[in-house]
Design a protein around this nucleic acid. Structure first.
Length: 429
RNA sequence: GGAGGGAUGGGUGAGUGGUUGAAACCGGCGGUCUUGAAAACCGCUGUACGGGAAACCGUACCGGGGGUUCGAAUCCCUCUCCCUCCGCCA
C-alpha cells in the first residue's frame, strides 16, 4: 500500500508510474473520495469539539446541584442531542462510507518501481545483468524432464492426474528423495552459511496475512481458499514469513532479520491455460525454500543484493548455469519495487527458465502489515522494508538437476553437494 | 463441538457513566547527591490525524465493529483472539 498522503501530493507521478507498469487504474475516484473525506473530517472534529464543550458544562452544572442550573443543563443537553443526531451522525455515516469506498482502491494500487528499474512493455524488456556457468554441450539429444522422469520411474504424472487432476505430480523413490535432498541442502546452506533462521510456518493463513503481503484483495483468483473458513493455502512462504513480523515494532539493531522456510506452495494459476502444460514446470502444488529479510530502509537495496546472492549460491553449488534478469516496470510484481529473477538453464527446453524471484518491496508490505522498527525502543518508529526471494524453487531445481545432469543412458548423475543427502551418486532405472 | 473466564499505555496492573489520556508500580529519560557508580529523592515519560512559524490547540484511540446516553474504558449487542475445564482426535 502506498502512503495516501504521498499519492495525494504526487498524483501525476503515480499516474506515470501506473502507465510504466502497464496497469490500468483511474486515480480520479480515489482523489475525489480523499478530498471529500478530508473536508468531512475537519467539519466533524469541529462539531465534536462543540459537543464536548457542552458535555463539560453539563457535568459542571450537575455537580453544582443548583436549581437554576437545572434548566440550563436541560437546554444544553437538548442542543447536544441535536448536534449528535443532525450534525454528527450523518457525517460519521458518510465518513464510514467513504473509508469503505477508498480502502479497496488503495489496496489495489501497486507499488512504485525503484528509480533505476528499466522501463518496458513486457517481459521481453527485462534486462540480463549477469550470466553464470556455461550450458553443457551434450553429445546426444537431451531429453525433457517428463521423459526422463517417466523412464526412470521417479515422476508419475498419470497417477497424479487420477488423484488430483492436471498440474499435480507424484514423485516416486529417488525422485521423491531428490526433492527432499534439494530442500534439505538449501535449508542447510541458508541457515549455516547465510545466517537465516529456519521457520516452519503454517501452510494455511487468514486473509489478513494475505492482505499484508499484497495477494489480497487483488489476486484472490490465483489462490486456493478453504470453504467455510477464512483460511487460504499459501501461494508462497513469503506470506507467513513476512507476516511473522506483522504488527511488530522491531529493534533497529536487530535488522536485518533473516528467515527461511521450506513449504508447499499452492497456486490455482488462473489464466495460465496452455502454458507449460507438459511436465512439472507449472503446478498447483510445489515446494519452495523461501528467503525473507526485514531491513532498515537505508540498507534494503544492499540487502536485496545479498539475498539474491544467497539464492544464486544454491545454483552455483549445484553447478547449474543461470542468468540474472532485472525485471522491467511492466513485469514487476504488484508489491515489488525492484526484482531480480534467477533463470536456470533447462537443456530439455533449450531455454533459461525462472527458478527464483528476489524482490525488495520497500515499505509497501510493511504499511499493509504494519511492520515497524525503532532504535533503542524510543523515538518515532518507521516502516521497515521487506524483502523476499526464492532460495530456490525446489520443484524447478528438481527439473534443472534432472535435465542438466542426464546421461546418454538416461540416468541422472547426482551433483556432488547433494550426494550426502541422496545417499547415491546416480539415479538409474 | 460444549461450559466458563479474560483482553486497559513499553511491562505488571487499578479503574464508582461526568476536568480519566487514564491510578499505582516497574522500565526509560533528565536532574539532585557522589571522585565515579549504586542507592535515595525530585521531575518528565503513548500514538495517529488536523491546525499553527512555534509555544500550543483540537479530534480520535482502553482487542475490532455496532448500540444506549447530553456524555462511555465503565452499560448493552456482536465479532476476533487468548486462557481454564469437558468431549473428540494425530
Amino acid at each position: 500500500m502506498l502512503d495516501l498522503a504521498y499519492v495525494r501530493e504526487h498524483l501525476e507521478e503515480i499516474e506515470a508510474m501506473l502507465r510504466k507498469r502497464q496497469t490500468r487504474f483511474d486515480l480520479e475516484p480515489l482523489r475525489a473520495l480523499d478530498a471529500e473525506r478530508r473536508k468531512l473530517v475537519r467539519e466533524l472534529e469541529e462539531i465534536r469539539q462543540q459537543r464536548n464543550q457542552i458535555s463539560e458544562q453539563v457535568a459542571r452544572l450537575k455537580r453544582a446541584k443548583e436549581t437554576e442550573g437545572h434548566a440550563r443543563a436541560e437546554a444544553l443537553m437538548n442542543e447536544s442531542r441535536r448536534l449528535g443526531a443532525e450534525e454528527i451522525k450523518p457525517r460519521e455515516d458518510r465518513l464510514n462510507h467513504l473509508d469503505a469506498a477508498m480502502e479497496p482502491l488503495l489496496l489495489n494500487l501497486p507499488n512504485r518501481p525503484y528509480a533505476s528499474v528499466p522501463e518496458g512493455w513486457s517481459s521481453e524488456d527485462n534486462v540480463e545483468i549477469k550470466r553464470w556457468g556455461e550450458p553443457r554441450r551434450f553429445d546426444f539429444e537431451p531429453l525433457a524432464h517428463w521423459d526422463l522422469g517417466l523412464q526412470l520411474g521417479i515422476l508419475d504424472l498419470e497417477t497424479a492426474a487420477r488423484l488430483s487432476g492436471a498440474r499435480f505430480a507424484v514423485y516416486r523413490g529417488a525422485g521423491a528423495r531428490l526433492e527432499r535432498a534439494l530442500a534439505n541442502f538449501m535449508l542447510d546452506l541458508h541457515t549455516r552459511k547465510h545466517g537465516y533462521q529456519e521457520i516452519l510456518p503454517p501452510a494455511l493463513v487468514n486473509s489478513a496475512a494475505l492482505r499484508g503481503t499484497g495477494q489480497l484483495p487483488k489476486f484472490a483468483g490465483d489462490l486456493f481458499k478453504c470453504e467455510a473458513s477464512d483460511l487460504w493455502l499459501i501461494p508462497t512462504a513469503e506470506v507467513p514469513l513476512t507476516n511473522l513480523f506483522a504488527g511488530q515494532t522491531l529493534e533497529a539493531a536487530d535488522l536485518p532479520r533473516s528467515v527461511t522456510a521450506w513449504t508447499p506452495c499452492f497456486r490455482s494459476e488462473a489464466g495460465s491455460y496452455g502454458k507449460d502444460v507438459r511436465g512439472i514446470i507449472r503446478q498447483h502444488q510445489f515446494q519452495k525454500v523461501e528467503l525473507v529479510k526485514i531491513s532498515r530502509p537505508e540498507d534494503s537495496y544492499a540487502d536485496l543484493e545479498r539475498l539474491t546472492l544467497d539464492a544464486e549460491a544454491v545454483l552455483q553449488a549445484l553447478e547449474l548455469p543461470y542468468r540474472v534478469m532485472e525485471l522491467c516496470t511492466a513485469d514487476l510484481g504488484f508489491s515489488s519495487a525492484k526484482t531480480y529473477d534467477l533463470e536456470v538453464w533447462l537443456p530439455g527446453q533449450q531455454a533459461y527458465r525462472e527458478i527464483s524471484s528476489c524482490s525488495n518491496c520497500e515499505d509497501f508490505q510493511a504499511r499493509r502489515a504494519n511492520i515497524r522498527y525503532r532504535a533503542g525502543g524510543k523515538g518515532k518508529s518507521h516502516y521497515a522494508h521487506t524483502l523476499n526471494g526464492s532460495g530456490v524453487a525446489v520443484g524447478r531445481a528438481w527439473i534443472a538437476v534432472v535435465e542438466n545432469y542426464q546421461q546418454a543412458d538416461s540416468s541422472i548423475l547426482i551433483p556432488e553437494v547433494l550426494r550426502p543427502y541422496m545417499g547415491m551418486e546416480r539415479i538409474t532405472r
